[in-house]
Design a binder for these strands. Structure first.
Lengths: 211, 211
DNA sequence: TCTTTTGTGTAACAAAAGTTACATCTATAA
DNA sequence: TTATAGATGTAACTTTTGTTACACAAAAGA
C-alpha cells in the first residue's frame, strides 16, 4: 500500500534503491482533516514526506497570534523541521491538515547518510530548501507590500488551488485567524470582494468566482 | 592573504582539504560600503562566503518598494542564491555592503561535488539553510506581529549589533526605505523613542542607548 | 417546539500608518 | 558670503485597520 504510493509518486524523483530504503525505514501516517501533524518548538527527529493531501503551515507567537506561511502538497517535505533544534525562538511552526493526508516520516539521521549515497536525494533536499525559501519570501512580500484586501484575496485564491475546489468551506472567523486580523475586518473586506464580483458569500461557504 | 583569512576563520568549520579546494577555486572580492554585492533575479552561478564585514540582504518588489530581510556576517553564506534559477518571481533579493567586506565566491557546481566529499560541507550547507530559514521566520514574525514602533526599535538594535557600534550613521530617509514606510513616520516614531529615553537623535546619526 | 450556539452584517468609534505641506537647520559648493 | 541641497521637526489631514456593540439569521440541540 505505502510501497505502491511511494513508487507511484516518487519513482520519477528518486532512484529505485532509495525508494526501497524509504519503504524500509519510513513510518507511514494518515492524518485527518484539521488534525495537528507537527508542532515545532517540539524537538523533531523525523522529517515528513507528503504522499497526498494538504498541510497548512503556520507560525504562532507567544500571544497565540497566528499567521499562515504556506501549504504543503504531494511530494513536499517540511525542511523547517530539519533545523528545529537550532531555533531557540519562542515562536512555533505548526502544521495542520487541511484535508485528509498521507505522510511518510523519515528518521532525521538518514538525511545525511542519503546525501552522500544518492544524487536524487541531494537534489531533493536542496530543491526542497529552495522551494521553502522562496515560499517564505512570498509570505514576506505579502506581509510587507500588500494591504489586507489583497492579502485576503490571495489567501482565498491560494486555498482554492490547494483544495482543488472553488468553493471553500470556512468561516470569517477562521480566515481572520489565518491572516492575524479580526473577524469584523474580514467580513467587511469579503463583502467588498463580493460587491466587486470576485466572490459569492454563503453561510460557512465562500465561492471564488475568478482565480 | 586570502589563504590566511580562510584558514583563520574557517579552520574550525572546514576540513584542511576543503579549505585547500576553496582557495583553489574561490574568487576573492573586496566590497566597499554601500556597494552592491548581489542582485537576484540575475542568474547566479556562484555563492558568496563571507570572510568579514556585513551585508544587508533585502527584498525589492516591482514598484521599487523595499524591505530588509537580515544581515550576513563572517562565516555566513547566502543560500538564497543557490536557488536563484528556480524562483520565477519578479521580486528581487539584493545584497548591499553595510561596511567594507571581504567575500569568497565559490562556483555553484562545486556545491554538489563537495556535499558528497566533505562532511563539514554537508553540515555547513544544511546549517546555512536552517539559519536562513529561521532568519526568514524572524522577519515574518516582525512583519506579522509587530507595530511600526517596535519594528523600528528592533531595526536599530539589530543594526547596532551588526555594526558593533552603538552610534549609527544613517538618515531617517534611509531607515524608512529599509522598513518600507515613509520618512515622516520614521521621524515621528524616532522622536517618540527619544522621549522614552531609548535613543538620542543627531543629524545623520542615532545613538542607541539601551540594547 | 423553543432555546442556544454559531455565523454574518453593519454602525460607530479609536488607533495606527500614510500623505501633504511647510518651516527650520546644517553642511557644502559656488 | 551666499545659495543650494539634504536632513529634520511638526501640524493637519486621509486612509487603513482594529475594536466594541448589537441585530439578526441559520443550524443544532433539548
Amino acid at each position: 500500500m505505502i510501497q505502491e504510493k511511494l513508487k507511484e509518486y516518487f519513482s520519477v524523483v528518486f532512484e529505485e534503491d532509495l525508494i526501497q530504503e524509504i519503504i524500509e525505514v519510513g513510518t507511514y501516517k494518515k492524518v485527518k482533516e484539521n488534525e495537528l501533524l507537527l508542532d515545532l518548538g517540539d524537538k523533531f527527529d523525523k522529517i515528513p514526506l507528503m504522499l497526498n493531501g494538504a498541510i497548512k503551515i503556520s507560525r504562532e507567537d507567544d500571544n497565540g497570534d497566528e499567521i499562515v506561511l504556506y501549504f504543503l502538497e504531494r511530494g513536499d517535505t517540511c525542511t523547517i523541521t530539519f533545523g528545529s533544534g537550532l531555533t531557540s525562538s519562542k515562536s512555533k511552526v505548526r502544521g495542520v491538515a487541511e484535508k485528509d493526508s498521507e505522510v511518510v516520516f523519515i528518521p532525521i539521521h538518514k538525511l545525511e547518510e542519503w546525501l552522500v549515497k544518492y544524487k536524487s536525494w541531494r537534489n531533493f533536499v536542496i530543491d526542497s530548501y529552495n522551494i521553502r525559501l522562496s515560499e517564505m519570501l512570498e509570505a514576506i512580500d505579502t506581509l510587507a507590500f500588500m494591504k489586507m484586501d489583497q492579502r485576503l484575496y490571495k489567501y482565498l485564491t491560494d486555498k482554492v488551488k490547494i483544495m482543488r475546489d472553488s468553493t471553500l468551506n470556512t468561516t470569517h472567523q477562521k480566515i481572520a485567524q489565518d491572516l492575524n486580523t479580526s473577524r469584523v475586518v474580514v467580513s467587511r473586506l469579503l463583502k467588498q470582494l463580493e460587491n466587486e464580483g470576485k466572490i459569492k458569500l454563503h453561510r460557512n461557504k465562500i465561492e471564488v468566482l475568478e482565480f
